[in-house]
């Protein structure tokens, strides 16, 4: 089965990002499944800030997703409109909006909703975490 994950829950006010990673790890464990891509939307875009510093003895869900994505070559898409509304800018968006700072962490890419449409068309299942 070829999956994509659609994550909308906040990384701090919900367990959406954590449960989704549990699912993703389980899905690829036996090699029978593939994951086409991950799309973060609504409050889930907050995962992509490299300025969030959880205590060292707690899970850093941003970095855990980055490591997993890199290891399995799975793209981490962050909706560009939802992200810039909430301050998750990358360097080019910071330039475009003429602000000094940008915060988007490595491995996370700002993408339009068209990428979610593509994932929807290319995947057997979309699994939602909110």
């Amino acid at each position: 089965m070829n999956y994509s994950l659609f994550i909308t829950g906040s990384p701090t006010a919900s367990r959406a990002c954590h449960s989704a990673l549990d699912f993703a790890e389980a899905a690829v464990t036996n090699g029978e499944n593939t994951i086409q891509g991950i799309f973060f939307y609504e409050e889930a875009v907050a995962i992509a800030t490299n300025l969030a510093m959880p205590p060292r003895d707690e899970c850093n869900i941003r970095d855990e997703w980055s490591i997993f994505a890199k290891q399995h070559k799975i793209p981490l898409y962050v909706c560009i409109a939802a992200a810039i509304r909430r301050g998750q800018l990358n360097e080019s968006e910071a330039k475009r909006h003429e602000v000094e700072h940008f915060v988007l962490a490595d491995e996370y890419q700002l993408e339009g909703l068209g990428s979610l449409v593509s994932l929807t068309l290319e995947s057997d299942r979309i699994v939602r975490f909110k």
Partner: peptide
């Protein structure tokens, strides 16, 4: 919340892609 706005944005993009 902004949920409905972001839902309608998604609907419009599906429409734009002729889905």
């Amino acid at each position: 919340s902004t949920s409905l706005k972001e839902a309608l944005d998604l609907a419009l993009v599906f429409g734009t892609f002729e889905q």
